[in-house]
Nucleic acid binder design. Structure first.
Lengths: 232, 232
DNA sequence: GGCCCGTCGTTTGTATACAAAGTCACCTCG
DNA sequence: CGAGGTGACTTTGTATACAAACGACGGGCC
């Protein structure tokens, strides 16, 4: 029944809810509340919260309370500074060590993707699944455990940032071209191009997120999602 | 008396002992043993071990036991792949945002350092303190919280790797020159040079560590420090 | 003699009970 | 009316008790 540990289940559940935005930034993460909610004791909840705090998804709030960490536009900019460093290096190593066939296939699928993005939410999900495939392929190809660990925690934050601002179809089409270029460079074993194309993609992605966030602020109340600027 | 939490004290103590090599790779980290040793309950020990595991300083051993993670030459090489990514970006951002005066001062002190490294262990410690000063200055200058977090956990691993192989005076003199160049580039606001000089330094540092490890294997028994690769 | 199964022991995982510490509100005093 | 302190309450931090899971060891059977 409960083949996995309770602390693991609680951790994943909370992590998913934070990334998906169901638990918005600033939401309080009380041990007793969560224990009651998940039907477990405080002990596994405590362990889950500690992990979330270590990853930066939760942070100490005003008193001794733990809250979902905020994600202001400045935070996103800073997050992407780390993302650029990690993903550039990942692409470089993948180009050095990866099997070309895998990335040639991915490049072709990314090249074909723009035509599929004309309509609908399911198309978007399918595209994100393809991006995840590329991430997995890069992880396997680079064969760099320490980098892989850092990337894993990073991606949760990136997913959260993406969730804050839904990409529009134009951006997705351009992203598909950027991804196709990255995959091609890796397949060619071109470390420099792979690294630089990734850096370009990360910058473009950041610009898109910030643009989306700025335009949304005009008519929608985004302050509810980004409540406290920076709690000390 | 115990103004800080017991879990924090245990965490720091274990972390220091792992980094310093007092707890060698492969050493078992039993909850009950550590609880008895530190005079606290299993609960804070458990929390400390979870943090160490999240940082990669501890890993699951053969059974359900937690052991100090191994650090083979391959591991060091992989670690430095992450280090290169993080520190290059850190230097780039520091060059972009840092105050030149701080780094000009550091550059001068690094330039003067080679003459001070002629003899003795205390000199080496003084030099490492200077390196730490540079790290702190870069952290402050880059103003990138996510990157800073990743760097913090990275540095524990790097310190452990450094501990495995004591640098010789020649290497230290060359490192001082490399550091001086990095500091100068940052002071000049030269992002490209700062980033590339850091990459060069990381590569040279890796080569020195691996060389040292290889030469030590000849006459000394290093297998005690890197015991089980993954033996069941 | 070798392999498989059962039992035992040691470990971690979870729950709960207890203690301390900080915060908030309210009351009192200046 | 404001500021300071003091009280209680709500939170986390720690300890301990209990349960379950996994590995190891030994004995029996093929």
């Amino acid at each position: 029944m409960a083949a996995v540990r309770a602390s693991e289940r609680v951790y994943r559940a909370l992590r998913d809810e934070i990334v998906s935005g169901h638990l918005p930034p600033g939401a309080e993460l009380s041990e007793v509340d969560q224990a009651g909610l998940r039907g477990v004791s405080r002990t596994p909840v405590r362990e889950a919260l500690a992990r979330l705090q270590a990853e930066g998804l939760a942070a100490v709030g005003k008193g001794r309370t733990l809250v979902v960490s905020s994600l202001s536009p400045e935070d996103v900019a800073h997050l992407f500074e780390l993302r650029e460093a990690l993903e550039s290096q990942a692409a470089r190593l993948a180009a050095r060590r990866g099997a070309p066939a895998v990335f040639l296939d991915l490049a072709a699928r990314f090249a074909a993707a723009p035509g599929l993005l004309d309509d609908g939410d399911p198309e978007r999900e399918a595209y994100y699944a393809l991006v995840t495939e590329l991430d997995v392929a890069i992880d396997a190809a680079m064969a760099s455990p320490y980098l892989e660990r850092s990337l894993a925690t990073l991606r949760a934050h990136v997913a959260r940032a993406r969730r804050l601002s839904r990409d529009n179809p134009d951006r997705l089409r351009r992203a598909a071209q950027e991804h196709a270029l990255i995959a091609t460079a890796i397949a060619d074993g071109d470390e420099v191009l792979a690294s630089q194309a990734t850096a370009v993609h990360v910058r473009a992605s950041l610009a898109a997120v910030l643009d989306n966030l700025a335009s949304r602020t005009e008519h929608d109340d985004v302050t509810r999602l980004v409540p406290t600027g920076a709690a000390p």
